[in-house]
Computed example of a mutant assay.
Amino acid sequence: MSAWLWLVGAASAGIAAAPFLRERRRPIMDAQARRAAPGEFAPLPLGETHYRWAGQARGPVAVCVHGLTTPSFVWEALLPELSRLGFRVLVYDLYGRGFSDRPAGRQDAAFFTGQLDALLADMLEEDEAITLIGYSMGGAIATAYAARRPERLRSLVLIAPAGMGHDLGPLARFARGAPLFGDWLFLAGYPRQLRRGIAEEAAAGRESAVPDMAERQAAELRWRGFLPAVKASLRGILARPMEAEHRAISRAGVPVLAIWGREDPVIPLSGLGRLVQWNRVARQEVVEGAGHGLVHTHPAEVAEAMRDFVEDPPG
């Protein structure tokens, strides 16, 4: 009987340790891995940040902030559209994603706005105003930054923005609220959930204009630190509504445009009504037939929704 109990205990310990061991065995994003990276790197306080410039050689600067699981390549289809709108565009990888470093710790608003502030200080003059464009979780980051540094912004564009109600599924909700067992369950189950979500987006018939989008997004799972970064964001920047920040942006008079996908299951269209309550002068547009991936499935429509606003922002 004792041998049987020992075997059960050993098997249980192995099951418990397996997700953590898999994470430790994943390759590190290091100098060798970065040899394939386009663009350049900025040595910021919490680590190397991958960035690149696109669009016009001169003109107003647009800074694009990507979402929870898709690095800066998610913008590739929209970059030519932003260039046609006259922008010089800066895209970068958030900590924990793409070619950037994976620092540990809580990924809250201060974590992400600190990265953006340091990058802008490295790239631009202090008095150079920007159009800040945030997609999905990047919308929450852009909102937090605009509330803290409204003087830096010419305008704010939010595309399917988090912070006004979102549904990332039961696993994400559980992991956010259960620090111990949630860690194990997230490492064990989230890769399958992410792959399923990628497949469902493709099955919906919304073809991505970014080459190999699904494969590149799924490839993030192979790097050490990606899953902990996603979990840290769920417990940080994505843990609460951003009503206070939106009301502060409204008081500061920052021009805001929000663009929504009509069929987005992740950031539902109900966020439009919530934003109306928090910022009555924000302009809002809806892209018909678009899901959550509208920046790469409907880039022309997103750019068209932006055109009048960026050429002559209100205020």
Rank of each mutant, 00 (worst) to 15 (best):
L7R: 15
L7F: 10
G9C: 09
A10T: 11
S12M: 13
A13V: 10
A18H: 08
P19D: 04
P27H: 06
D30E: 02
D30K: 03
A33K: 09
A37H: 04
L44K: 01
P45A: 05
V61E: 00
F73R: 05
F73Q: 04
L78V: 00
R84M: 12
S100I: 00
R102T: 01
D108Y: 06
F112V: 07
Q115H: 02
L116H: 02
L120M: 13
E126P: 15
M137G: 01
G139W: 00
A140G: 15
T143E: 04
A147G: 09
V157A: 08
I159V: 15
P161A: 06
G165E: 10
G169E: 01
P170F: 01
A172I: 00
F181W: 15
F181V: 15
D183K: 15
D183W: 08
W184V: 05
L187E: 08
L187T: 03
I198C: 04
A199C: 05
A204W: 12
A209Q: 15
R216K: 13
A218R: 09
E220I: 02
L221M: 02
L238S: 05
P241Q: 12
E243L: 10
E243H: 14
A248V: 01
G253R: 00
V256G: 05
P265T: 09
P265S: 06
I267A: 10
P268Y: 03
L275N: 03
Q277N: 13
R280D: 14
E285C: 11
V287F: 01
V287W: 02
E288R: 12
E304Y: 10
M306Y: 02
R307Y: 06
D308G: 15
